[in-house]
Design a protein around this nucleic acid. Sequence first.
DNA 1: TTCGGTGCAAATCGTTTGCAATGAG
DNA 2: CTCATTGCAAACGATTTGCACCGAA
Lengths: 157, 157
Amino acid sequence: MEQSKFAAPPDSIEKAREIFEKYLQQKALRLTPQRRFILDYFLQAEWHLSAEELYQRIRKLDPNIGYSTVYRTLKLLGDCHLARELPLGDERLHFEPMYKVQHHDHLICKRCGKIMEFYRQQIEDLQQEICAEYNFVPTHHNHEIYGYCSSCKGVEN
Amino acid sequence: MEQSKFAAPPDSIEKAREIFEKYLQQKALRLTPQRRFILDYFLQAEWHLSAEELYQRIRKLDPNIGYSTVYRTLKLLGDCHLARELPLGDERLHFEPMYKVQHHDHLICKRCGKIMEFYRQQIEDLQQEICAEYNFVPTHHNHEIYGYCSSCKGVEN
DNA sequence: TTCGGTGCAAATCGTTTGCAATGAG
DNA sequence: CTCATTGCAAACGATTTGCACCGAA
């Protein structure tokens, strides 16, 4: 029974590292200092980041880590469910660390760009119900609601 | 009260044309043969299309319509809610004609690419409820569930 | 007659990839 | 030792834009 989406995220950095290391071993991949560094930095991020943002921040701490390594590592983290890819409406992909966070989806203001998080167990349950009907095994979902936040909804244009 | 998302889609090509023409007039934009042609072709599409697909099909019927005109017109159609932008997991954006179709969201198989449509009034209602809580005025949403369809769920890899 | 629209080619921009050097196991 | 990984720069692919001509209003 696949349940990656529904498994609780790791609640300690150590546990997350363990998941990553197991994943690498299983695929006969190597644990490099760069990968370890990116994992640690990413998991401690307070919020979702674009690859670019992550790269810029990491580069300040260690200028020897390249752009492509960040991209490649982010993909690995996605594969082992330590990162979640989020299409948040702009042209780039954002990544949300799956660490100590409860699953949630997003409300996005089209005017000021403000992003809020929401969660409804009922919606999660209904999705399960739908999947069962279609005989579909879900791994993850995207759910974003676009519109205008309280500060922007009256504003002209 | 904004309700673009919840307004019924036009149920005749004529009504859709009217919406488009009103929109253009209101913005002091011009109704060109290209725009008319793209509108008509797009609305009759049986399903969501990428800009590329739309361009290729239209080009067969009228080789004088350019790539950029398709993109620009699709954006206009999005603005007046005759097209809905869909991020379906691949690198490109798809556009779904909002014509005679009931609103729905998508189940996407990560292995074979099959796309199925689902709809649950309860989920729509819950979204409204969430927006009310956040004092947020929704215009539209994306909701895609990724996983494996019935034919793919047992398959190795 | 006036500007907005068009097609084309070039530019953008996020992301991916080829490659020679590096280093984890 | 081997072969996965790295950083860099070049490549890619979807989308956008500058521009000179065109044509809707």
